[in-house]
Design a binder for these strands. Sequence first.
DNA 1: GACCACAATAC
RNA 2: UUUGUAUUGUGGUC
Length: 432
Amino acid sequence: MIDDSSHCPHRARAEKNASPLPVTDGKFDFVHEDAYLPPGADRQDRKIFEKQQEQHFRAIHRKVLQDRWIFSPFLEKSIPKIAGGERIISLATIRDTLVQRRLYEYLYPIVDPLLSDACCAYRRGSGAHNAIKQIRNALDAGYVHVLDADIKSFFDRVDHETLLAIARDLPIDERALRLLQIYLTTPRVTSEDRRKADSAKPRTKYSREPRTLGIPQGGVISGMLANLLLASFDKEMQQGEDILVRYADDFLVCCQTEQAANDADVRAAHALDALGGLELHPDKTAVRDATDGVDFVGFRIGRGFTRVRSANLAKFKKGIREVIDTHKPKTDSNWDLRRLSRRLSYKIQGPIDEIRKHNLAKHPHHRSWIGFYRIVDDEKQIKNLDRWIREQISRYVWQQHHKKVTAKHMREAGLPSLYGTLWKARKPPESA
DNA sequence: GACCACAATAC
RNA sequence: UUUGUAUUGUGGUC
């Protein structure tokens, strides 16, 4: 990612040190033109930023190369977690996001080779499906005694000095190192402070609170930093026969015996403590027999089966309910059922009409929810879900039109089945 | 190759 | 007035 434009006054130094920098190429790859970008603590939104984009690029470039970049405070926002509770997310300013992206591009090729195959989150070419595949292999090979563990408030409790000590051993530019340190200690604006300042007339300045612990969730480089910190932990857990699979702070150690899993528990607690006093979550960590399944990254996986995890199933049902509950009824019941089926069809199999226009046979994989869960092999679970959806529709039609509808009516109204969609998604492509 | 859209996961 | 980041998957366009 080295990109020294001719107008850079520090060209020589940048070359010598392998600059982490350049924010000068004008590449502004926010997803799409009219996407709204929330203003950060500088209250600058995308429109304002773009008016003076070139000046901003130059200023950023200069300051970073001169080792003088400071991140604005991160605004905090809470979002709900899938299993309940809330999660604090940090929002950066546009300029800071650009700097973080450059830092990310610079550090990624240095950090990634240090990671183990067991580390599946925040990495190119990996992901949830890869994690599930590894666990399936382990369970199928008889490694069914698992330590199912979660690190207590992991992101919030990362110790800065421990992480920086690891970063100092990397072959990186001094400025990148200092940027990391600045990033970690960038102050926060809590959602309460933010609300107060925004509702005051005239608006007042945000009050900032120092950060002494943890990495901001929502930062571009945070996931990578988490992996960097835990790289040594992964190595430690992979000793012996045990098979580790880690996704962010959530990990399984698959063992051949219960004793080995208990040992892994002790080793994990020890290794985490050595990494700046991290702890396992006592309630979410246990040694269990995975023959009947364990929950991991959206799936429930056991010996010989993969299902949708119940919390994720509930979330999907909630989405279906929302479509039905917000549906505006029409007086003609047949027409109404047709309209509702159309909306639900999108949830179930994605915008299939668009695909059919071209060549359906060539594109057996559909997007949408079932596309992600296409590796599920418990057909009963999917059939039950189909039945559940039909029950919801049937109840809706009864309440609105006092008519009984069967599965046949729904099929004729254009409602696809999840099972059929899954079956098609798993089928290998027909010859083109 | 590039760009875009929509899903899902995790934090 | 505004829910962030990374990754994966699928599809589309040139």
